[in-house]
Design a protein around this nucleic acid. Structure first.
Lengths: 225, 225
DNA sequence: ACCTGAACACCGTTCAAGT
DNA sequence: ACCTGAACACCGTTCAAGT
């Protein structure tokens, strides 16, 4: 019943294209994590040698950027044109961005260092600027503000990279708990609260802090706010 | 004139200790960058095999955390007890932290993911809490605020990891410049300003945004600020 | 220009065995 | 408990050669 599709296991080897490589990369990432999105692993997937991929990407970091650019397409920008409070809509867009990165925290970690520049990224930036503008945030503050908002969202997701490594968080928790109130009174007083907090509430608080701060902090020379 | 110190090139092989390994790691990082702070490279430095190091560190990430913990000792906490505006003193502490990380951006990148828990880290956190307290920031807001402040400072430094890769920034710049004002009016209007800005002014603005935001954003349930 | 095999110079981590 | 050599299973990137 099988169509005799030549002697190979895979469909006839497709010509290499940037898009094709990125698609394969996304697939490998979903299945095996970003760690395995390597030049060699991908080359194997695409039935070629690693050197071939250097025609399309300067290095592995750029390959990861391309993957991020691709995933950015799944961020929900609908709230931008929806009705309602601009702050809530901005929060929604950033929450969608953060949630996407939470699924691939090591991609977030690489995004802290390597900014994408594709169409999806531009759309996201434009959307955030539109919302800040709607809120009456002065353009100069909005300009640096987008960057800050995306930085925090990205870093928040990145925190969960490294497979969480529960032992590592245990150590931080233990260190905070072990602190003596004579030497570290404020840490001792706050205790668990320093680390804890329902994730989403904490993330959302962080975003509101940023929005409020961006509104309240002029960019003009002065040191005082 | 030379003391005959056995037949070896190096001084007699020192016993392995956590401190000794970290010291060697810092040395290698200063000389060759964090990339070269690997189990194997360090083992070579210490005249042993890589397996030996696993007695002291669960994995390479934890080794890097230990290096960060060490460098945290060089952050200048003097402003905490100095006279003057608490905001300016807080800015100074965070600037010292950021500056230290700017020297080793890839260490910053790893710090986004792996929080340290050593004595130096605890001192830094306690200091920031003290300053926020002095400013009258409610403890609950201060609690989550420290984290946010350190996150932004860390991520800001981490941005410069990857050897800057000038070509990458060229691409981002080009993408922003190439944008058409019909589709991306706000990006087009802001132009270079999105990316540019004298680094220090921008970093300092970011920190002030955070301080202002932390003051202005209550943690109590409500969604509105 | 695009593609490739092969080579160079590395990695992290585990294991069984030793002290 | 601490330390080790050796092994396993990978990496990124470059180069000379081919089409």
């Amino acid at each position: 019943m099988d169509e005799p599709r030549s002697r190979r296991e895979r469909p006839a080897k497709a010509a290499l294209t940037r898009r094709g490589i990125v698609a394969a990369a996304v697939e490998v990432m979903r299945a095996e994590g970003l760690d395995r999105v390597t030049m060699r692993r991908l080359a194997k997937e695409l039935d070629t040698g690693p050197a071939s991929l250097y025609v399309y990407f300067r290095n592995t970091a750029q390959l990861h950027v391309a993957v991020l650019d691709e995933l950015l397409g799944s961020v929900d920008l609908a709230p931008v044109k929806a009705a309602g409070d601009w702050r809530e809509r901005l929060e929604a867009v950033l929450a969608s961005y953060t949630l996407m990165l939470f699924e691939y925290p090591s991609l977030a970690q690489s995004a802290v260092t390597a900014r994408p520049s594709g169409e999806n990224y531009l759309k996201l930036v434009e959307s955030i600027l539109a919302l800040l503008d709607e809120g009456g945030v002065p353009p100069q503050q909005a300009s640096w503000g987008v960057d800050l908002l995306l930085k925090v969202a990205t870093a928040t997701a990145a925190e969960h990279a490294g497979g969480e490594d529960p032992e590592q968080w245990d150590e931080v928790g233990a260190a905070l708990r072990a602190v003596r109130s004579e030497t570290h009174p404020r840490i001792a007083a706050l205790g668990e609260d320093l680390l804890s907090g329902p994730g989403p509430a904490r993330t959302s608080w962080g975003i509101r802090v940023l929005i409020n701060g961006v509104i309240a902090t002029p960019r003009t020379g002065g040191k005082q706010s």
